[in-house]
């Protein structure tokens, strides 16, 4: 199963830094995540869409299309809105 890595306040909300979740697309993995950890849902999703400024990467590449396919060895990273410099 793809590995999902969580960052910043998503860790506290989910109670974990990392988990494995089934899913054939990034969108399915994200939906699986919020089902397993409902406390994250309002931070990540607005209805069925990603909230503004939520960042998702697939193997280190930004994802803008939730329909993109994922495979067993993939790493999906999810960041809440972050900033700095």
């Amino acid at each position: 199963m793809p590995v999902v890595k969580l960052y910043a306040n998503l860790r506290k909300l989910a109670g974990t830094k990392e988990l494995s979740l089934a899913g054939q697309t990034v969108g399915m993995v994200v939906r699986g995540l919020v089902e397993q950890h409902p406390s994250i849902k309002d931070v990540v999703l607005e209805g069925s869409e990603l909230r503004p400024h939520i960042i998702i990467t697939l193997n280190g590449h930004n994802v803008t299309d939730l329909n993109i396919s994922v495979s067993e060895q993939d790493v999906v990273a999810i960041f809440p809105p972050i900033a700095g410099g």
Binding site: F79, I82, A83, G84
Partner: peptide
């Protein structure tokens, strides 16, 4: 400005 910067500061960029 209301959550990300106050909660984690600028170092939050390290992981991304």
């Amino acid at each position: 400005t209301s959550q990300a910067l106050p909660e984690f500061g600028t170092v939050v960029l390290m992981n991304i």
